[in-house]
C-alpha cells in the first residue's frame, strides 16, 4: 500500500522529480502573484476612479472572475488562449501559428484569478487611509505625484501586506488546479508517479505534505514581513 521508499532521490525514486515539481509550483505562484498584483493595481485604480465606465468595467471583471469556478477559467484560457493570441496577431498582420506553452497559460490563468482578490485588498487599503492626510498634504503644497509617492504608496504597502499574504496562500493552493494543463507541478507529478507505481496514496500524502510545508513557511514569512514593516505602528 505505501511505497515511501520510492521517494528517494536519483534514478530509483521520485524524490528529485518532486523537488523540481515543487520549484515549478513556487515559480508559477510567484509569477502569477506578480502578474496578479500588477493587474490589481490598475483594477483597484479603476474601481476608485471617478470614471463611471472604468468603475463598471472593473466591477464586472472582479464579480465574474470571483463568481465563476477557477477551473472553468483555466479551461477557458487553456482551450481558447492560443486562438485568442492568434486572432490578435492576425489583426497586426501575422498569420503564423502561435502556441502558448503550459507555463504561460498557467501564469495568465492563475494571475487573472489572483488579481481579483488582490484588487479588493489594494482597494481596501487605499480606502483605509484617512482623508485628512490628503487634505493635509495638499495644504502643505505637495504636488499630486508627491502625494501619491510619499503619502499613498508607503501606507498602502503597509496596510496591504496581511491581505496580500492571504491572497498568496489562495494563489499557492490554486496552482494545484493547473495540473489540468499538463504543466508538471506537484499535482501533475503526483499523478504521473502514482500511475507508474500504482500507489496513489503514497504520493498524494507527499503532495499534501509539500503544500503544507509551502503554506506554513510562506505564512511565517509574511508574518515576519508584517512585523517588520509595522514596527512603530500599532
Amino acid at each position: 500500500m505505501f511505497k515511501f521508499e520510492k521517494l528517494v532521490f536519483g534514478d530509483m525514486g521520485w524524490g528529485d522529480e518532486f523537488l523540481i515539481a515543487t520549484f515549478m509550483t513556487i515559480a508559477v505562484s510567484i509569477c502569477s502573484m506578480g502578474l496578479g498584483i500588477f493587474i490589481a493595481i490598475f483594477a483597484a485604480w479603476a474601481k476608485l476612479s471617478l470614471n463611471k465606465f472604468l468603475k463598471i468595467l472593473s466591477n464586472i471583471y472582479t464579480t465574474v472572475v470571483r463568481g465563476v469556478p477557477e477551473l472553468l477559467i483555466i479551461y477557458l484560457i487553456f482551450f481558447g488562449g492560443s486562438a485568442a493570441i492568434m486572432s490578435i496577431a492576425k489583426a497586426f498582420g501575422y498569420y503564423g501559428y502561435i502556441e502558448l506553452n503550459a507555463f504561460t497559460i498557467s501564469v495568465v490563468a492563475i494571475g487573472l484569478i489572483s488579481a481579483t482578490y488582490s484588487t479588493e485588498v489594494i482597494r481596501a487599503s487605499v480606502l483605509s487611509i484617512d482623508k485628512g492626510q490628503f487634505e493635509a498634504a495638499k495644504s502643505m503644497g505637495l504636488k499630486k505625484f508627491q502625494i501619491f509617492y510619499k503619502i499613498l504608496i508607503p501606507q498602502v504597502l503597509r496596510h496591504a501586506i496581511p491581505g496580500i499574504g492571504n491572497v498568496w496562500q489562495v494563489t499557492l493552493k490554486d496552482t494545484a488546479l493547473i495540473s489540468v494543463t499538463g504543466l508538471v507541478e506537484i499535482m501533475r507529478q503526483t499523478r504521473i508517479s502514482s500511475n507508474v507505481e500504482h500507489s496513489p496514496f503514497t504520493f498524494l500524502i507527499t503532495a499534501a505534505f509539500l503544500y503544507l510545508i509551502l503554506t506554513t513557511f510562506s505564512g511565517k514569512f509574511f508574518n515576519f514581513i508584517e512585523r517588520k514593516v509595522s514596527k512603530g505602528f500599532v
Binding site: T175, M187, A207, A208, Y211, T215
Partner: peptide
C-alpha cells in the same frame, strides 16, 4: 486549510 482542495 494548508492543502489544496484538489489534493483532498
Amino acid at each position: 486549510r494548508g492543502t489544496p482542495l484538489l489534493v483532498q
